[in-house]
Design a protein around this nucleic acid. Structure first.
Lengths: 213, 213
DNA sequence: TAGATTGTTAATCGATTAACAATC
DNA sequence: TAGATTGTTAATCGATTAACAATC
């Protein structure tokens, strides 16, 4: 699949939501779906749904709507979920283990290969997931196909791990440490900052007082 | 503090980033800071920094910039971090325990009060955090000042917990389940969906092939 | 066919950026 | 004072929404 121009971040972040929505509809036995239905579920406009899809192609039929199975498959492919990804996790704390144990990821092609830490006697990983010392990181990455590095360490170490991952040729970093890791030409990054999320919630909680009506 | 008009989501989500940036600068011993400095650290424009701040007041001085301590205190207040929040966590899995154990939250006034689950023999919580059966949720909320309910269950239960939390008068929900919980007049919600984050990363990883140059 | 709904073009809205007077 | 930098107004840019021809 080829598309005309780079897709804006706003659109990209809606794609997983469409995917989730379609999965739910499929589970409910729905066979076809209109942009209006999707828009109501996701609380956006039907116009936006159609605009978003049209960035990637023509998936519907006038007067009919979208075939659910077909549309879902298309979006799945757009997200790249039809491929397999090798994932390593750095940091064997609660977040790291949460990721390691979330089996549903495997349905979408994410294979958790290993969890790295400096201390790991206490770490219980699911079967098939190796537990290794961080010193073995480079060696492991060389010998295995690692596409994604999830970083769940504290921020002090997160940056150096990211550096190491980039050097090893890992092209995607999923960062949970409360610090920004920057993208470069060879590496895409998704920063997921729990602090910022909580603080945003906190702002909203107080906003009623702050904002005059 | 009172402000003129509702602040857009884009601005709100930058506020915690400013706050983090200022904390780092403070730790580095910086005493005053300009919008340009901040903009370079956060990879945005100086214009945007000043526009964002000006939504909430005038915190700087022409020709000088911003006094770091003062500005940081202002943003802290804007985020509502000068208050105390009672937090309960529903779901004693890895994510739930990650939240329960992240002590740094207490520095910003978040008091983790309890973790709820249906099975909890295995749960080790830090001292001061109660571990309770979900059946005791209502009672606990009645008897304690609970401001924020973090939901870390699987999606099947997440919705009913959210419903229950709303009924009990909890006005902020921090949701980690892969489902959208909707805001209403009395309840603000922050949905933090790990799946969507991973899928977004995945899109970006493949985007180079997808997007023609 | 008539009704429904897409894909797309045009209009609107809002957010970002640029520019600059005010002033420390 | 001269240089620096804010806060704000105006210009630009981009994203969302509306409208509608195409057509199933």
């Amino acid at each position: 699949m080829k598309i005309k121009k780079p897709i804006s971040d706003a659109v990209v972040r809606r794609m997983p939501r469409y995917y989730r929505c379609l999965k739910e509809l499929e589970r409910a036995g729905v066979k076809r779906v209109s942009s209006t239905t999707i828009s109501e579920i996701l609380n956006i406009t039907a116009s936006q749904v159609r605009q978003d899809f049209s960035n990637f192609g023509e998936f519907g039929q006038q007067g009919y709507g979208y075939d659910l199975v077909y549309l879902k498959a298309q979006i799945r492919a757009i997200l790249g979920l039809d491929k397999e990804y090798g994932v390593v996790i750095v940091g064997g704390g609660h977040i790291g283990l949460a990721l390691a144990n979330y089996e549903k990821y495997s349905r979408e092609g994410f294979r958790i290969l290993a969890v790295f830490d400096v201390k790991f006697d206490h770490i219980k990983a699911p079967r098939g997931v190796e537990i290794l010392h961080i010193d073995e990181f480079e060696k492991f990455v060389e010998e295995n196909k690692v596409d994604i590095c999830a970083i769940t360490t504290q921020k002090e170490t997160a940056l150096s791990i990211a550096e190491k991952a980039k050097e090893c040729g890992i092209s995607a970093i999923w960062n949970f440490a409360p610090i920004d890791i920057h993208e470069d030409d060879n590496t895409v990054v998704e920063n997921l900052n729990l602090n910022e999320s909580l603080f945003t919630l906190c702002y909203k909680l107080n906003a009623k007082e702050l904002e005059e009506v």
